[in-house]
């Protein structure tokens, strides 16, 4: 029997090319996961994503009902439709998970992220930074003679665009919260 000719690091020989071909289209979904705010619940959710090889683009979590001790985890993920369905089903079977909402399929979504930008510069650059901040409705929350910290909220695209503009002007540091999201309309 001749030895196997497997190229090192070859992905064409990966076991996963025998996976079912449901659909190759990558979709981006925003999921809202309502959980009991108990010790380790976030680790369970994150561990599920890492353990099963799913993507996390953004993740936010905070207790939203202090009396009922429930938290809302908003997670933005990408995958094929079949993977997205798997993620929802896998999340749904975690014991402290009450509900999994796929906001992307449930209708229109409001998505917002908050970001802080530190921009260094003097003279024209400083003036240009303020002008752009005004256009993007970013607020100055800290200032020195040669720097600003801007606060901006918006969807991910807006914040990315603001970052792209600020980078040549003197963006030196950025902090982002990740996405919080709700469905549009009256229904909860």
């Amino acid at each position: 029997m001749p030895p196997l000719k497997l190229k090192k690091g070859s992905t064409s020989h990966s076991a996963y090319n025998l996976r079912p071909t449901f659909s190759d289209v990558q979709e981006r979904h925003t999921l809202a996961v309502l959980v009991d705010n108990e010790v380790g619940v976030l680790a369970r959710v994150i561990g599920l994503f890492s353990g099963r090889g799913y993507n996390i683009e953004s993740l936010t979590v905070a207790e939203v009902d202090h009396e009922g001790h429930t938290s809302r985890i908003t997670v933005v993920t990408t995958g094929t439709p079949q993977v997205i369905e798997q993620i929802k089903a896998q999340l749904g079977r975690i014991v402290p998970v009450h509900d999994v909402h796929d906001l992307t399929v449930e209708g229109q979504v409001v998505e917002r992220e908050l970001a802080l930008f530190k921009v260094q510069g003097t003279g024209d650059k400083r003036i240009e930074a303020l002008r752009l901040a005004e256009i993007f409705r970013a607020n100055v929350v800290d200032s020195t003679l040669d720097s600003f910290v801007f606060e901006i909220t918006g969807d991910v695209g807006k914040i990315d665009a603001f970052a792209d503009l600020m980078r040549p002007i003197g963006l030196v540091e950025m902090g982002r919260t990740g996405v919080a999201a709700l469905s549009r309309g009256a229904r909860a």
Binding site: P20, F22, Q82, E85, Q86, A89, Q90, G92, R93
Partner: peptide, 11 residues
């Protein structure tokens, strides 16, 4: 009984 078993591998 486990929703995550359905459509995981075979449609």
């Amino acid at each position: 009984i486990d929703a995550s078993s359905i459509n995981k591998v075979i449609k």
